[in-house]
């Protein structure tokens, strides 16, 4: 998997644009869904996904093949998602969306039932603090180990474990309350 990524990266750096498309197609779902779980809506996750792709395209020459490409990619996704959440905090502070209703309802989920299910999940995830949410997503959705998450986020494994513990506690409590 890593070797396949490295071949595609080398090909892209040699000027083969289609290798970049192949690389992106391989990871685009993971990028989108990580961002979606972090931000809780399609509009923001689409923005994060596009930004991540642009960053990868522009910075791939600085990838030194020392770590796995996926680790490098996740560090970009994580940073971009957290940046967007910070930006959104400021934007929401000055926004009139709450008074006049949100401007877009665009989504990639077509089925109403699934949409409702996803909304519940997103609502629950948005209620837990950002750092705890991030660890929870990395562990459960991206299936990463604490060591990998630690190298991506720069947080110690102990702190990650504590964050994950609190995340699970809050999420299960919330689900129990709803039921």
């Amino acid at each position: 998997m890593t070797e396949e990524d490295n071949i595609l990266i080398r090909e892209f750096l040699d000027g083969n644009e289609s290798s970049f498309n192949k690389l992106i197609r391989k990871y685009q779902n993971q990028i989108y869904w990580h961002a979606r779980k972090m931000t809780g809506n399609h509009e923001d996750s689409d923005e994060v996904t596009q930004e991540v792709m642009i960053t990868i395209y522009n910075k791939l020459s600085s990838f030194h093949f020392e770590s796995a490409f996926s680790t490098w990619l996740y560090s970009i996704v994580s940073t971009r998602s957290l940046n967007l959440l910070k930006k959104r905090k400021v934007r929401d502070f000055f926004s009139f969306d709450d008074l006049f209703g949100k401007s877009t309802n665009e989504d990639i989920i077509r089925d109403y039932e699934n949409k409702e299910k996803l909304e519940k999940v997103e609502k629950a995830l948005q209620k837990i603090p950002t750092k705890q949410r991030e660890v929870f997503i990395f562990r459960n959705f991206d299936q990463l180990s604490y060591a990998e998450i630690s190298s991506i986020t720069g947080t110690s494994e102990g702190a990650l474990k504590a964050n994950y513990f609190h995340a699970i506690k809050k999420i299960t409590e919330m689900i129990d309350e709803e039921l």
């Binding site: 792709m53 642009i54 299910k117 929870f136």
Partner: peptide, 30 residues
């Protein structure tokens, strides 16, 4: 507890694949 945790990690929500198919094109436009 494990099933509750797994539910939140799920991504199988029947997504519109045209979004993912057009992603690279949209990114290049941007």
């Amino acid at each position: 507890i494990q099933s509750q945790v797994k539910l939140l990690a799920e991504t199988n929500f029947g997504t519109d694949e045209t979004y993912f198919n057009n992603l690279t094109v949209n990114f290049r436009k941007k």
